[in-house]
Nucleic acid binder design. Structure first.
Lengths: 146, 146
DNA sequence: TGCAAACCCTGTAGTTACTATAGGGTCAAG
DNA sequence: CTTGACCCTATAGTAACTACAGGGTTTGCA
């Protein structure tokens, strides 16, 4: 199949596939006489593997490592794979916690302007200005006292 | 004060300050005879404003808009500022939801390998490979049935 | 006076995972 | 024989910095 069909079946676009090839995540396929890439079923499976991992927000570097294990299944223990997953889960967990703190801070700031005001009189802007000149700010001081 | 001191007081480093100047977020300061940037108190306040907004994960584009309101306080209504905050809150909220789904998927996948295995026998890797060849995958199919 | 450390300057390239564009070649249908 | 849909390479852009390379300046100390 040509790159366009692989792209459609893999749920990404052709540029992305060429990018993965350049990055060494997909092997360079055979070419037709005119230089078009010609892919086999195995390429589709590898692309699906990559896209699936990407949908789990794994980095291309991590995916490269997983692909290496996939291509050279070894009798060594799989601790490394587990550690990779654990690190990924840890990162996501931390991101969630930090975004939740952020959301609280933003909601606190947002509450400073509930009724319609003028720009010159906007509680949000005033709070931001106050924080800039060294006053403690509601958004970072008040809510998350951890 | 010189750029190094501004950086220390503003909690960022000198490169970042030069970057903000290039991006038009900080006005170009006066220069000494030898070309060193010389900052005033007002610069520190503006930098603090920017860094505070950044700590709320606002984009530089949004911060630029807030700075404009700050510099030209107008009698117009502040709807725009409120809308900016609401959009920011919405984005963060969606990110949290999507990361929470992700975390569940990763935990489900992680559960496929609880005991120590060999790489060739790792439940995580097998699950990823299965998903790549078209089988439904636990991580995306099982948990979040919304 | 000489020197070294600690500053500062500009300009450019790197980061992530793509996406978009320019400027071309190929192929099948009508 | 032309039109449209496809393909190719190479390069630049995205966000918000960060990290050089390759230089100049200032300050303190011997």
């Amino acid at each position: 199949m040509q790159i366009g069909e692989l792209a459609k079946r893999g749920g990404c676009d052709a540029e992305t596939i060429r990018y993965y090839e350049r990055e060494g995540l997909l092997p360079a396929p055979a070419r037709s006489a005119s230089g078009y890439r010609r892919y086999e079923q195995a390429h589709l499976e590898q692309l699906a593997f990559i896209r699936h991992c990407r949908s789990l927000a794994m980095s291309l570097a991590d995916i490269r490592r997983l692909l290496a294990y996939h291509q050279h299944p070894s009798p060594a223990p799989c601790d490394d794979i587990n550690a990779l997953l654990d690190a990924q889960i840890g990162r996501i967990h931390q991101q969630i916690a930090s975004l939740q703190r952020l959301e609280q801070q933003l909601l606190t700031l947002r509450a400073r302007c509930d009724a319609p005001h003028t720009v010159a009189d906007c509680g949000i802007l005033k709070t931001l200005e106050g924080a800039a000149s060294g006053e403690g700010c509601v958004c970072h001081d008040a809510p998350s006292r951890d």
